[in-house]
Simulated assay, not measured.
Amino acid sequence: MKKLILLTAILLVVIGCKTTKDITMNPKIATNTIKIAVGEISDIQKNKAYELGKRVLMTCNTSKFKPFTADEATPSVIQNTTQERLTKTCQRFRQYYGTFEDLKLIEAYTIKSDNSIIFRYKALYSKNIANKELRVTMTSTNKVSSIKSLDWKDEISIN
């Protein structure tokens, strides 16, 4: 009986002390990214990221999308950013958040391994309940390598 109680106590301690993962920042990625001051980024790169990100979200207002060129985006972004995909997403966004108004640059991160920059924009919509983020990743050659829409969180999780 004492062994059973001792074994149960040990199991409870082991289960109770189980570590949990930090979901806000992946350590492998955290060591590869550095937050940078927005003022340190060239205006050309900031403007290009803003214009390309805004072009995607303006599709929700106009229902027209000018496809990215090879000078603006990587081949995978060009292939994945289609009028059909954007229309599906936009229908949902307009229903829940209203009309897209503008983007506000909040912060930027550089990825050390390839010198690309992740721009975090707060997407502003006509409905006050909208709390969306647009994340635009620009390569060192000023091409969009990723565009992602997420729910806004103050603590970043780059993945």
Rank of each mutant, 00 (worst) to 15 (best):
Asn115Ala: 09
Ile111Asn: 07
Asn115Ile: 00
Gly16Leu: 05
Ala73Trp: 06
Cys17Asn: 07
Asn32Cys: 00
Thr59Phe: 01
Leu12Asp: 03
Val77Met: 02
Ser126Thr: 12
Ile15Glu: 01
Leu52His: 08
Ala30Cys: 03
Asp22Gly: 05
Ile156Thr: 02
Lys88Phe: 06
Glu72Ile: 07
Ile158Val: 04
Met138Ala: 01
Thr87Val: 07
Ile147Asn: 03
Phe119Ile: 01
Asp43Tyr: 10
Ile15Lys: 02
Asn128His: 08
Val38Cys: 08
Gln91Ser: 13
Asn131Ser: 06
Leu134Gln: 03
Val56Gly: 02
Ala130Pro: 04
Ile129Arg: 14
Ala30Pro: 07
Leu103Trp: 11
Asn115Trp: 00
Phe119Ala: 03
Gln83Cys: 00
Val38Thr: 15
Val38Gln: 14
Lys66Leu: 08
Ile36Trp: 01
Arg94Ala: 11
Tyr125Cys: 04
Lys3Val: 10
Asp43Glu: 15
Ser42Asn: 14
Gln83Ser: 12
Thr99Glu: 13
Thr137Leu: 01
Glu40Asp: 15
Ala108Arg: 03
Ala9Arg: 08
Val77Ala: 08
Ile23Gln: 11
Lys148His: 10
Lys153Asp: 09
Val56Thr: 06
Ile129His: 10
Ser116Arg: 15
Lys46Thr: 10
Thr31Ala: 07
Gln91Arg: 14
Asn61Trp: 05
Ser116Cys: 08
Leu57Gln: 01
Cys60Val: 00
Pro27Arg: 11
Glu107Arg: 14
Thr141Ser: 09
Phe100Ala: 02
Met25Ala: 15
Ile29Met: 10
Ile34Val: 14
Pro27Leu: 03
Asn131Ile: 01
Leu124Asp: 13
